[in-house]
Design a protein around this nucleic acid. Structure first.
Lengths: 217, 217
DNA sequence: TTGACATTCAAACGAACGTTTGATACAAAC
DNA sequence: GTTTGTATCAAACGTTCGTTTGAATGTCAA
């Protein structure tokens, strides 16, 4: 088993370094040589453990991205269950908190959302996986939760667009950090992140009008 | 001048094909050979007209992206000026209409927002250009417009976050078209686009609560 | 101790990359 | 008619790419 442990370590290191590099710079900009150098192993290790570069990319989603998404969703469900009823206010706050603070380290969260954004913009095989195993089920749960509390006469598409829009904000403010910092002139520190959570909650609930924070909390 | 015209044609074709390919697949995934093949010219044309690949990429932003962004902004200002006062409702509607329907062809719009999203996620030299020449000035104008109409006690950062959030929605629903279609199950045709404009306006103004369309229009 | 198996490694493979070169074509200037 | 300058082209440059190979290493069961 000590042999298996070593194997696993190399495989795990490869997955970690590959994820970080793919997230930061994209599939094509990262070479196998760069990944194996970062993982401190031989060039051939990628092909030995994963067959080829493309499959390493897919495995990053299977072995790392999906479990992490599940952790975030679990965190969301836990914090929401602590509340009385799944009212939109509580749902929005729990969602924003889970995805912008939540159980992930800041680096994990950055990589997570960058990988997701890349797949949204240019879907590969990984997107099928991601949509079926993570997005659709979770969005379905949210729709079931929020549907009854939404204004009357709200069709399913409109509800889904509302949910997607909140995720667009979460994704955007994680994905475009550098740009957001430069435009707002604010450092992306934990204080700014707290203000961001507040903003996203207010915006999702009330749009431009919901900035006074009157009835919330 | 007929020689200059031919030169220009090649240069213009290169810019067009390069923009389309860079937008769809990103800088590193597109080769100079692929661009010159699409533009039906010799491989060396990129280096002759633009020096190198990187500079062709920058020139796509300077010669194509920025002028197009200006056209969209001009469209926004024109349709807004036709209204009485720049109330948030009119601003939101004019913005969404300019950026989701507006003066661009559907293909242009798609490429435009994909290039922008790529720069937001991983800024290069093009982003400096883009931020200084287009984003900051326009966001500044919007802030001046919307500032007085916003709820009392709204600081500058919060106002900018509101504006950025509306752009996040515009960008997202252009950038992640394939994914949005697959999640909502709706075709991205012009009818869906019209519903999208309506949704983004309502969401930006009222968040999850603004789906009844009561006071709007 | 031996044989089977899993893992790592240096080295090399052919293909594709961005870029350069020198020849060629052609219009305008002298 | 010759020169000058611009644009295009096929061909090649050296480099890097993803992948393959075969030997070396270490582990464990027989």
């Amino acid at each position: 088993m000590s042999q298996n442990e070593k194997n696993d370590l190399t495989k795990e290191r490869l997955l970690s370094e590959a994820e970080a590099l793919f997230a930061k710079r994209g599939y094509d900009a990262v070479s196998v040589r760069e990944i194996t150098a970062a993982a401190k192993c031989n060039l051939a290790a990628v092909n030995y453990h994963f067959g080829n570069k493309q499959n390493l990319y897919l495995e990053v989603f299977r072995a790392r991205w999906v479990p992490r998404a599940r952790r975030v969703q679990e965190h969301f469900r836990k914090t929401l269950a602590a509340q009385d009823a799944p009212l939109p206010t509580a749902v929005a706050r729990s969602l924003a908190e889970a995805f912008l603070v939540g159980p992930l380290s800041d680096e994990e969260r950055q990589h997570h959302h960058q990988l997701m954004a890349r797949e949204l913009g240019h879907p590969t095989d990984a997107f099928d996986f991601l949509a079926d195993k993570v997005m659709r089920p979770f969005f379905g749960q949210l729709a079931d939760m929020l549907g009854p509390t939404m204004p009357e006469g709200l069709d399913k598409e409109r509800l889904m667009l509302n949910i997607l829009s909140m995720f667009a904000l979460v994704l955007y403010f994680n994905f475009a950090r550098a740009a957001v910092s430069r435009i707002t002139g604010s450092e992306y520190d934990s204080a700014f992140k707290a203000r961001l959570v507040e903003h996203i909650v207010q915006f999702s609930l009330h749009g431009w009008g919901g900035v006074k924070g009157g009835t919330i909390d």
